[in-house]
Amino acid sequence: MAVSVQLLVGPNSWAVADQGTFQSEADCEAALSEAVPRTLSDGMRLAWEQSELKFVCVKVRGS
């Protein structure tokens, strides 16, 4: 899932890949690089290309 938190419009989320969990951060980064650009609107894609919008992989584990 990609989640964006924007100052004026609040959070937004969407699925970027249906690949389950990743074995490494490198695998996650590769999936983001491939999947994120094609799921963005034109304005968000431009912001991403100009490094104004960032996507990062986070590690989540059970409590």
Rank of each mutant, 00 (worst) to 15 (best):
30 A>N: 09
10 G>T: 10
31 A>S: 09
43 G>C: 05
28 C>S: 05
50 Q>L: 15
61 R>I: 10
5 V>Q: 08
59 K>Q: 03
31 A>E: 08
19 Q>M: 08
21 T>M: 06
55 F>H: 00
3 V>M: 15
27 D>P: 03
28 C>E: 04
62 G>C: 13
61 R>P: 04
48 W>R: 05
32 L>V: 11
34 E>K: 08
29 E>T: 10
57 C>G: 04
4 S>K: 06
22 F>D: 00
17 A>W: 05
34 E>H: 05
4 S>P: 02
49 E>F: 14
50 Q>Y: 12
3 V>H: 15
61 R>Q: 09
38 R>I: 05
60 V>H: 07
51 S>D: 11
24 S>K: 15
32 L>R: 04
49 E>W: 13
55 F>D: 06
62 G>W: 12
4 S>D: 08
23 Q>T: 10
2 A>G: 03
41 S>T: 04
30 A>Y: 02
37 P>A: 07
55 F>I: 00
51 S>Q: 13
14 W>S: 14
11 P>M: 11
57 C>W: 00
51 S>W: 02
36 V>P: 03
8 L>M: 02
46 L>E: 14
11 P>S: 09
45 R>W: 06
57 C>Y: 00
2 A>F: 01
6 Q>A: 06
59 K>R: 04
55 F>R: 05
7 L>S: 12
2 A>S: 03
25 E>D: 05
17 A>D: 02
7 L>I: 07
33 S>T: 08
28 C>Y: 07
30 A>K: 04
24 S>Y: 12
23 Q>L: 09
26 A>K: 11
13 S>R: 11
13 S>L: 12
25 E>Y: 06
26 A>T: 10
33 S>N: 11
49 E>A: 14
49 E>Y: 12
45 R>I: 10
15 A>K: 05
2 A>V: 04
44 M>E: 10
39 T>F: 02
11 P>T: 13
17 A>S: 08
22 F>A: 06
23 Q>R: 09
16 V>C: 07
15 A>E: 01
27 D>S: 11
14 W>K: 15
54 K>C: 11
63 S>W: 15
41 S>A: 09
26 A>N: 06
43 G>M: 01
21 T>K: 02
13 S>F: 15
55 F>C: 00
28 C>V: 04
29 E>V: 13
24 S>E: 01
49 E>R: 15
46 L>Q: 09
34 E>D: 05
58 V>E: 13
33 S>W: 07
46 L>K: 15
59 K>M: 02
19 Q>Y: 07
8 L>C: 05
6 Q>E: 07
9 V>D: 12
53 L>Q: 11
8 L>E: 05
20 G>I: 11
52 E>W: 10
26 A>G: 08
58 V>G: 15
14 W>G: 08
60 V>I: 11
26 A>W: 07
23 Q>P: 14
24 S>R: 14
55 F>E: 08
46 L>D: 03
44 M>T: 00
46 L>S: 12
17 A>I: 03
1 M>P: 11
28 C>R: 04
25 E>L: 13
